[in-house]
Design a protein around this nucleic acid. Structure first.
Length: 285
DNA sequence: GCTTGCGCCTGAATGC
DNA sequence: TGCATTCAGGCGCAAG
């Protein structure tokens, strides 16, 4: 699934291959991918056709193209979304949802098996589309304010992993990177945020940024790499995962088998020795 | 106002 | 073999 580094790789691909091109024709193959564009598929197409793409931007896992009338077109990849630039006559993917014919004879395709993602023409500004307004900055954003996040995290009465996954506190952190950053710090996922020391939160946020930067470095920045990544060869994270998906494997730090808990209808992986489970007031999951 | 949990989706993996 | 169930999880939204 696309995590923030993958979304950034996609953004760079769009910046290199889509910015400067004009949308000549829009084909919507599955309206469910436009369900958040309330005015419907026909309106979506009308708003894009004839417009030139001037920028590709990102905050957290939200991605948007800016058109030459300053309209942002928001794209979210959800769990399974892909953005591909291909020849118009290339074989169509099974889950192709939206195809944009671009000037210069290429086609931008939005492919999404599980339809958790989608596209929409947004209100708001090119810098902050409406759908992104409530999303916090991500740890790779130059304006990311660590001390502000430390303060706001400690003001909450919740568990530390819940806080990491809350997009209004810090954006771009998914289940995989939350577990990896907690392992690196190390902290148990159920530690109460209001009982953490500021230095612990600072360390945690530093590890979140490091995990993302490591993955971005591995993911490459070429469009070839983009193809590789979105085509499911996710060698991207696999090599460097210490916790996520490692149930039963020895912890790289202490050798204790990694545990897996069911948590919030998903999984949490943790080392029982390095990340001891908190008790009493220190726990909040 | 803040925190918590559900539902959206499909297909691979698993169970009977 | 074939059908049913489980699991994966980012996000918006409603309920607590």
């Amino acid at each position: 699934m696309p995590e923030l580094p993958e979304v950034e790789v996609v953004r760079r691909g769009l910046e290199g291959h889509v910015v400067g091109r004009t949308v000549e024709r829009v084909e919507v193959l599955d309206v469910r991918s436009l369900r958040r564009h309330l005015a419907g598929a026909r309106d979506f197409a009308a708003r894009l056709e004839g417009r030139t793409v001037t920028a590709a931007r990102r905050r957290g896992k939200f991605l948007w193209l800016v058109l030459d009338d300053d309209t942002p077109v928001v794209c979210h990849l959800g769990m399974s979304g892909q953005m591909l630039v291909e020849q118009p006559d290339a074989p169509r993917e099974k889950h192709l949802k939206v195809a944009l014919d671009l000037s210069g004879g290429t086609q931008l395709r939005f492919v999404d098996q599980r339809i958790f993602g989608g596209m929409l023409v947004s209100g708001g500004t090119p810098d902050v589309p409406d759908e992104v307004a409530h999303i916090a900055l991500d740890p790779l954003d130059p304006a990311f304010d660590v001390e502000d996040v430390v303060r706001r995290a400690r003001a909450r009465r919740t568990g530390v992993k819940r806080a990491l996954l809350d997009q209004t506190l810090v954006s771009g952190v998914g289940n995989i990177y939350a577990d990896e950053a907690l392992w690196r710090t190390p902290l148990h996922y159920a530690r109460a945020t209001d009982r953490l020391r500021p230095i612990d939160v600072r360390r945690l946020l530093g590890h979140v940024a490091d995990v993302m930067r490591d993955a971005l470095a591995q993911g490459g920045t070429s469009f070839d790499a983009l193809y590789v990544n979105v085509n499911g060869q996710s060698g991207y994270f696999d090599r460097s995962l210490n916790a996520y998906g490692q149930e039963g494997e020895p912890c790289a730090r202490c050798g204790t088998p990694i545990r897996r808990d069911t948590w919030m209808n998903r999984s949490s992986y943790w080392c029982p020795r390095c990340q001891p489970r908190p008790r009493g007031a220190n726990a909040r999951s």
